[in-house]
Nucleic acid binder design. Structure first.
Lengths: 121, 121
DNA sequence: CTTGACTTTGACGTCAACGTCAAGGTTTAG
DNA sequence: CTAAACCTTGACGTTGACGTCAAAGTCAAG
């Protein structure tokens, strides 16, 4: 299939698909005209990419992660131990980000709690 | 005092201080030479800006928020009801961001839980 | 007077994953 | 054969709070 169809079948924009290729996440063949030709297997491949993006990984990380993952019919699993380590570290960073946001929210709550110590009728 | 001293006293870079002025958060006087002249009151003023930045507000928001806040010796409190509403809304958005990150982390946990269904010795 | 510390205004760089044209080939249905 | 749909490679724009020079003026001390 060509890029338009892959886009429709995955819900991912053509621009994004070209970007993924540019970043080494996809490697479609080419027609003599230059048109990209994707295989059916690229549909789940794109899905995998989106899962990892949704997991907060960057494309560079994903490029390294993909060769180390198996896809048991939708269930994505890491195989290389170093990838597992990287994912764990990443999860920890997300935890820290959550903590920061919660602190931020507490900050806001404190400000809101101090709301206008104006007249007490 | 001039910008260098304010920077040292607040721990905020000179670049940031100029940026805050550019965005209307600070209004230092000027010497004939063009040098910025800050008052002592600008030290806590900068502190207030950092608190709001740490609360996740953007400089544009802060520019609108500052005139509506009182600073009871370090305890920042909003006075305008619309500002309170904006802060509440912002807090809600932070809550949503936290939810998203937690979903992201859950995603990662799912991937990690699927770790290598390899050999079972 | 001079040197070195301090300051000024630009103005481009950063980080990420694309969005959004623009100009120009390719394919295909009719 | 032709128009419509589809595709290509650039290349700049987006978002925010600054970082990082660069060229040049100002000020304080000796």
């Amino acid at each position: 299939m060509r890029i338009g169809e892959l886009s429709r079948r995955t819900g991912v924009s053509e621009r994004a698909l070209r970007y993924y290729e540019e970043q080494g996440l996809l490697r479609p063949e080419r027609r003599p005209s230059g048109y990209r030709v994707y295989r059916d297997a690229d549909v789940p491949a794109v899905r995998r990419i989106r899962v990892l993006l949704a997991a907060g990984l960057g494309v560079a990380q994903i490029a390294q992660a993909l060769p180390c993952m198996v896809d048991d019919d939708g269930l994505l699993a890491p195989t290389c131990p170093e990838l597992v380590a990287a994912l764990v570290e990443h999860r920890d960073r997300i935890g820290e980000a959550i903590d920061e946001l919660e602190a931020t929210r507490a900050n806001l709550d404190a400000i809101l709690a101090a709301e206008v110590p104006r007249l007490s009728p």
